[in-house]
């Protein structure tokens, strides 16, 4: 029987060529004849990758030569976990990146979702999932290959989780240090702000005297007007609205704010529920603001309420610029300067 490839004349009955090893007759049993196919959704991504290869963008990566000692070091648990602070770095050094490709994709998706939904339950849930996926990838680079004990795995997983949690919070601090998130404790219908909305703001220096009327500011409400606020038992931060500036006289008459004898627009400066039934008049000190916030409870006297509404400028830590949550009301907060 002649081999079709090398033309070698084989003995009858042989199943493969004695010279080149090619099969002469079909093997017994089923043979896989359907080739693997590319999922449709991969087509554009592959096209992009191909374009990147053609343009030479990836060329610098291809010339990087990883020394052998680094690959060996990366397989030690501690270094594997440490290197994987950049997701998949240890795997990339070990040339095993593909084995965790999907995990890294999942991590990226969870992280993006957690940022997108930050401030709500889902945001924290996805952040937790991203953290867990990241830790799993890190442990996969070295630890999971050598340790089969469940208890050991759990302990190391938790240790790595702690380390990564620390790294995540620090990184978030570095990246978003100037962003001040917080919940609104005032309702301003004209600016589409409701109590409980999650707002993002820009950090400001304590004692900044330049906040305009109407600005929604992030403040520490524990001590207002230099005394312990009786309505909040512990440290309490939130976004409140500035109604009166330093040196002005603020009054509440028939459910409307008056500043220096002039009434304010009720839509832009709504009087909080707890102040509606009070006839209040207060002179705002030079380094303070009169703020509107929806405190809990009703029936406080006018003097106490006036003191509670005066906020030292040192207590203000940021100014709202964006409605982040709920999703359907996301948008910029415009303040009339």
């Amino acid at each position: 029987m002649q081999c079709r490839r090398c033309k070698f004349e084989n003995m009858p009955g042989l199943t493969s060529c004695m010279r080149c090893g090619s099969l002469l007759t079909a093997p017994e049993g089923p043979v896989e004849v359907a080739p693997p196919r590319m999922p449709r959704w991969q087509r554009p991504f592959r096209g992009l990758a191909r374009g990147a290869r053609k343009s030479g963008i990836l060329a610098p990566l291809q010339v990087i030569r990883i020394p052998t000692w680094l690959a060996l070091v990366s397989s030690v648990v501690f270094f594997g976990v440490l290197l994987s602070l950049v997701p998949g770095l240890a795997h990339w050094i070990q040339r095993r990146w593909k084995s965790v490709g999907w995990w890294i994709a999942a991590w990226a998706v969870f992280l993006i979702l957690s940022v997108f939904l930050f401030g709500g339950f889902l945001g924290y849930l996805f952040l937790g999932l991203a953290l867990a996926a990241h830790v799993w990838v890190a442990l996969h680079s070295s630890f999971l290959r050598g340790h089969d004990t469940l208890a050991m795995r759990i302990v190391v997983f938790l240790l790595a989780l702690g380390l990564y949690y620390f790294v995540y919070t620090r990184t978030a601090g570095l990246l978003f240090g100037q962003v001040q998130p917080g919940y609104a404790i005032v309702s301003v219908p004209a600016r589409q702000i409701e109590i409980g909305d999650y707002l993002l703001g820009r950090r400001t220096l304590p004692g900044d005297p330049n906040h305009p009327r109407g600005a929604v500011v992030y403040a520490n409400l524990r001590q207002i007007g230099g005394w312990e606020n009786p309505f909040f038992p512990s440290r309490y931060f939130g976004y409140v609205q500035i109604v009166g500036l330093g040196g002005e006289v603020v009054e509440i008459k028939e459910g409307v704010f008056w500043v220096n004898q002039s009434p304010l627009d009720q839509e832009l400066y709504p009087v909080p529920q707890w102040l509606l039934n009070l006839e209040l008049s207060a002179e705002v000190p030079a380094d303070s603001y009169f703020v509107s916030a929806e405190y809990m409870g009703t029936g406080y006297n006018a003097q106490l309420a006036a003191q509670a509404c005066i906020l030292s400028s040192r207590r203000i830590e940021g100014r709202a610029v964006y409605r982040w949550w709920p999703l359907w009301r996301r948008g910029l907060i415009r303040t009339d300067e």
């Binding site: 090619s22 896989e32 590319m38 592959r46």
Partner: peptide
């Protein structure tokens, strides 16, 4: 346009025709 699959399948074919 399924190039990686083509490579995989060529390797598979080479099991029969080294």
């Amino acid at each position: 346009g399924e190039y990686p699959e083509a490579v995989i399948w060529a390797d598979k074919a080479m099991e029969a025709f080294p």
